[in-house]
């Protein structure tokens, strides 16, 4: 093992160097295949977007195949609040969903087809009779 790992310089007590603060946090979004949506993966701290991309590709792009990465300053993300901001309404929303129509549409088709069948039958029946 390297000498420094084996015998690191002795260091004790308070730090004399000034506090540094942190770099800017960037949220990282990875795309696993072309055409797929980008998915939030985590954050990196970096000096700017270029460095954030450089870090993100190695940190979040190596544990699964990844074809594209976005980084966004975390501060730039505005979010709603769970308790304050109601997003989904309580009233019946099925009027704006496909499933709100599934049953009605099926029943209407069945009715129409049954009627068509009956008409056909009657036509055939008439043909045979006369």
């Amino acid at each position: 093992m390297s000498k420094i790992r084996e015998h690191p310089p002795d260091a004790n007590g308070e730090m004399t160097s000034p506090k540094e603060g942190d770099l800017e946090a960037f949220a990282v979004f990875v795309q696993l295949q072309r055409g797929d949506p980008h998915i939030y993966a985590g954050c990196v701290d970096a000096a700017d977007a270029k460095m954030a991309l450089q870090f993100a590709r190695e940190h979040y792009g190596q544990d699964q195949p990844c074809v594209n990465i976005w980084v966004v300053p975390k501060q730039a993300i505005a979010a709603t609040e769970y308790d304050k901001d109601l997003i989904w309404r309580y009233t019946d929303q099925t009027y704006r969903l496909a499933r709100g129509y599934a049953k009605g549409v099926r029943e209407k088709w069945e009715k129409i087809r049954a009627k068509n069948d009956l008409d056909d039958y009657e036509k055939e029946d008439l043909k045979e009779m006369f």
Partner: peptide, 19 residues
């Protein structure tokens, strides 16, 4: 690879280790 765990910034530690 000997730098892994000792890099100047955690993110670069990870990146340099990949290289």
């Amino acid at each position: 690879s000997d730098w892994t765990g000792l890099g100047p910034i955690l993110e670069e530690d990870i990146a340099f280790s990949s290289l």
